[in-house]
Computed example of a mutant assay.
Amino acid sequence: MNEIRYHRRTYTMGPTPIQKLERLSEALGGPSIWIKRDDLLGLTAGGNKTRKLEYLVSDAIRQGADTLITCGAVQSNHCRLTLAAAVREGLRCQLVLSKPELGEHDPLASGNHLLFHLMGVEKIELVPADADLQVAMENLSQAAEKEGRKPYIIPLGGSNQIGSLGYMACADEIEQQAMADGTPFDFVVTGTGSGGTQAGLVAGFLARQSNTKVIGINVSGTREGKETQVRDLLYRTAALTGLQGKIPDDAVRCDDQYVGAGYAIPTEEMVEAVKLVARTEGILLDPVYTGKAMAGLIGKIRKGELTREDRVLFLHTGGTPALYTAPQLFLSHQ
């Protein structure tokens, strides 16, 4: 058995809360909806990457690393949280950031970009939107090694079999909370980008022999491509943890109907979803991940794909700093 699954840093004290969204459920007239507040996880400004980093940073420390290197978009939540973990552990952090597909990069931008500098990022390598991020990270790693340092590369979104352990643990946490409250869930809905959150949740529910199904709402890519990506990561996570038994063919479900024109490109459905949740529950979503994921949940309810009898848990994966980078999306809509 691979012992890596038992090595973990702790960045959050206790489980994140689950709360029922009474007013949103009423407004939609569909299933009963709850929300898992992983936006309240314990690194700077919260978010789902914290759970992955508990395992990834533990692995880095065990290997003697002194520098974390990772990548993402210019407003990457994952990069913000990796940097926050590095600060917490006394490590250095270097970031590879890809320029936006549309528009220009603003070097004075707010949101996560501001937080990178506030927390003292050592280096930012800005690359074109179509650049190979892995190659760029390896170049930074080689340069650090020449300086006598020991870098540790964390993949995009923290999504490998080690990072996915964080959401296997989250699935277990959800099951324990559901049992304590007497509220088993039929579905968990989450935004799916790099795939580690969904793969970890599916692996965790399979390990518990739970009947809860995971629905991934794509924030990028096609349904077929994303399902292949998540399934591959699920198999690797299962191999790492010794998960026994056959993985059902329908274990991975992704929906690409709410991506719009592409990653981080706003949609009308996203704007509606962010405003509806803010005005019914006082909870902030973000325009890149949770806004589109909630748009998917709302769409599925309106299409009758989720019924009044279903019990649905929405996973809030954080990302709200990005909300403040695009006020025009919400100020121009009443």
Score class of each variant (00 low, 15 high):
A273E: 13
R88W: 12
G200A: 05
L102T: 15
C71R: 01
C79T: 10
F187W: 13
T228M: 09
K300F: 10
G120W: 10
P184K: 07
G282T: 15
V259L: 06
R149G: 13
P184T: 00
T192D: 01
E268A: 14
R9L: 06
C254M: 03
S32F: 01
G242Q: 11
C79S: 11
Y324F: 15
G291N: 07
L53N: 00
G195A: 04
K36T: 02
A129D: 02
T241K: 00
N2L: 03
A73T: 14
A180C: 05
G103T: 11
G319A: 01
Y11S: 06
V274A: 14
V74Y: 05
E309K: 07
A60F: 01
Y167Q: 13
L21M: 07
T197I: 12
A199E: 07
A86D: 11
R302H: 09
L40F: 10
P327M: 03
P15W: 04
D66P: 08
D286Y: 15
T222Y: 05
M270Y: 08
Y289S: 09
H117L: 14
L43F: 00
E26A: 15
A239P: 08
I153S: 07
S58L: 02
Q134H: 14
P107Q: 05
G47M: 00
V214C: 07
G103K: 06
S159E: 08
P107T: 09
F185V: 06
A171W: 02
G29W: 03
K303N: 09
C93R: 00
C254A: 04
K275E: 14
A85T: 02
K213A: 08
K292I: 15
F314Y: 02
Y6E: 08
G196L: 03
